[in-house]
């Protein structure tokens, strides 16, 4: 609904309309995002009696503790390792799935159908999706049984489950869709005539990919990256279940802190993670001007 505006009143009206447009978002973000973040921020500066009691005040003790701990570094390294691996695999798979759907499936109905197929894993809960890996990857799981049966291995492979590999597999399975959707979206807006022109001008498939498809899908890749990175860095459940408790992440560590009522250190870790994520996201946004790409 475009607000009708007479030239004389344009400015205040447009202003009002602008506010109205953002108000739903503000109404959601302020109470459900800004306010909780502020509470967490405040709690991170409070002192605690160690039994869940918070003493309002201002101390940097929690930050000093978090930043001085070798544990924090190890946790970040572990989390970043998972994030990087997940990102690479979701990007490669997501990109090529999107590419296939956009450029190789001629029938639009079929493309949409296949696209929907990508969402099938999301028809059940996260927990079930993860548990389902156990009969497949376990010591007595299908893969090990098959390999044993074929005589490829003598001992079941233990690395398939309850390992870093298992964590990455679960993340990739879960998050590839978050790459497919935005990349699909930006690829679909590439004018096919452009590709045809490139072919006519003698460009190779690799050149088309390198000079046209990838640059023009940049915004989708950036958006997908933001989704994947922020979800992996903010997750603890997949790590916990798929590593069989053998690994930890930044969030799992401060979740345990909450479990033993160490609110200020948990809050300080959460604030630190938020800052790290903000830095990563702004880095991505600096590399790719998503706004410009989207409105192009």
């Amino acid at each position: 609904m475009q607000p009708r505006s007479s030239p004389a009143q344009k400015s205040p009206r447009a202003n009002l309309a602008g506010w109205l447009y953002v108000s739903p978002l503000v109404l959601v973000l302020v109470p459900f995002f800004v306010a909780p973040i502020l509470v967490v921020l405040a709690a991170s500066f409070f002192a605690t009696d160690g039994f869940g009691g918070l003493t309002p005040g201002f101390t940097l003790a929690s930050y000093v503790e978090v930043l001085h701990s070798a544990l924090t570094l190890k946790l970040y390294l572990a989390t970043i390792k998972f994030t990087a691996l997940t990102w690479i695999f979701t990007l490669i798979i997501g990109f090529f799935v999107a590419y296939f759907l956009v450029f190789h499936v001629r029938n639009q109905l079929l493309a949409i159908g296949l696209f929907l197929l990508c969402t099938v894993p999301f028809w059940t809960s996260n927990i079930i999706r993860m548990i389902s890996w156990i009969p497949l990857l376990g010591k007595e799981g299908l893969i090990n049984q098959a390999l044993l049966g074929l005589g490829v291995i003598r001992q079941p492979l233990e690395v398939l489950l309850f390992s870093d590999l298992a964590v990455v597999i679960a993340y990739v399975h879960q998050l590839t869709i978050f790459m497919i959707v935005p990349i699909f979206n930006s690829m679909a807006r590439i004018d096919k005539k452009l590709i045809e022109a490139a072919i006519d001008a003698g460009a190779s498939r690799f050149d088309i990919m390198r000079l046209i498809v990838v640059p023009m899908s940049k915004s989708g890749i950036a958006l997908g990256t933001i989704f994947v990175v922020s979800i992996v860095m903010g997750d603890f459940f997949v790590v916990k279940v798929m590593s069989g408790g053998g690994s930890a992440s930044v969030v799992s560590a401060f979740y345990e802190d909450v479990g033993v009522l160490q609110y200020p250190t948990a809050a300080a870790s959460a604030v630190l993670l938020t800052l790290v994520l903000v830095a990563i996201v702004s880095l991505i946004l600096r590399t790719v001007d998503i706004r410009q790409e989207i409105t192009r």
């Binding site: 160690g50 544990l71 572990a78 930890a248 560590a253």
Partner: peptide, 18 residues
């Protein structure tokens, strides 16, 4: 139980996890 040194214990437990 919950130990008096729960915060420290939790930290060391996370060392074990990671």
């Amino acid at each position: 139980t919950l130990m008096d040194e729960a915060a420290y214990m939790n930290k060391r437990w996370n060392d074990f996890k990671v």
